[in-house]
Design a protein around this nucleic acid. Sequence first.
RNA 1: GGAGAGGUGGCCGAGUGGUCGAAGGCGCUCCCCUGCUAAGGGAGUAGGCGUCAAAAGCGUCUCGAGGGUUCGAAUCCCUUCCUCUCCGCCA
Length: 426
Amino acid sequence: MFDIKWIRANAETFDRSMSRRGLGPQSAALLELDDARRKTVADMNALQERRNAASKQIGQAKASGDEEKFKAIMAEVGSLKDEVQALEDKERAQTEALTDALLQLPNLLRDDVPDGGSEADNVERGNYSEPTQFNFAAREHWELGEAAGHMDFETAAKISGSRFVVLRRDLARLERAIGQFMLDLHTQEHGFTEVSAPLLVREEALYGTGQLPKFSEDAFATTDGRWLIPTSEVSLTNLVRESIVDAAELPMRVTSLTPCFRAEAGSAGKDTRGMLRQHQFWKVEMVAVTTPDKSDEEQEYLLSCAENVMQKLDVPYRVLRLCAGDMGATMQRTFDIEAWLPGQDAYREISSVSVAGDWQARRMNARYRNKDGDLDYVHTLNGSGVAVGRALIAVMENYQQQDGSIRIPDVLRPYMGGQEQIDGPA
RNA sequence: GGAGAGGUGGCCGAGUGGUCGAAGGCGCUCCCCUGCUAAGGGAGUAGGCGUCAAAAGCGUCUCGAGGGUUCGAAUCCCUUCCUCUCCGCCA
């Protein structure tokens, strides 16, 4: 959500950002709406002032017993009332129209976000180790899992439909181990506070983080008007909604391990095989709330935390600086971490680390008191740390052995009762 | 599901149809005082919008939200959302 006053003062910057997002210039239409609104406000205020003054005189007239004056002013106020009412209605409608328009707009882009229209234009920012090499043909995760009998899409389809999976035995445990490991890493080494927050949220929470109003088709709604979270970014970021955060408590860093639910509308036919793209998956999320001057470095910090997960798992990855056309609407700058998947012979997204600036904070009305003692909006950031389902895939494919067994990364063994590998087909 | 209570400033909390954006307290800021600290004394301290280059000032709106009664509503009425308590049910 944008501050219309900021748009008026920075129309060019604003329009350039929108253009880079593939939208036309937006400021002119918005400012026109706002000009009309402000004119109404001015008229309304003037009338209200007259009404208020007249009301006071009525009180005085009545007190002094001046019946004639009393009636005269009453008459004036009577007509003023309707006019004021009309202007108030007009003002409300105009403000609502402006707010609705502002709510639709994507976030600003930071200057260092590369231009580009698709993922092809993302810029590599660095990587960690070379792609894993095998002296046998690498299998995809679902081949490994189905062959060993602990990854079952058929049964999942009977229960829930496509894009669901049933994991059994060691693989179910490995999924749990990955989540536990990452959560412990963030809480014990990275300074995050673990949070267990709702998975079912009000519509307002999704407006706050920006999934609504534009992306309702991506999430699942319940029959009572609530929504299943598409990411715990929603629950965690909204922790500060409608509040004034104590500046001494910033940066606030929270993390949680939760299921995420996504409708995946519009990705029909994409990644249909395996568990890369599911309607339900586990994810460890990191959310940070900080002051505006600290959000850039905070994003670097979140990225380093996510990278640390990958390094400890010892899975090859690269970091991308997402281009304008590939970025989500709610963020100002995004770094993706892509894990190397030998079975696919490709890097695939496993984490996304973004800074939203004050865009979400304005929607949530989340503020803090700055050094001058004035209220200002906080900056919010989030990053996957990392997606559990995809980490499971990455571990399976990178740690696979010729016989279809899978070695267990060192850091996960404590969470697997010391087990060193998951056996392949019997 | 049944019955009840309540939503007021950063927080707690008082509040009667008018002079209330709102007592008091806490917190915070500044000043005074004491060698330092603690304690004490004094002053200040809601937010949004509009106007303004900006600040000040001025105007206006806001006591959950929306509507109504009234010359006038935090206060009365209606609707609605939310929170809490008790009972029932339940992991």
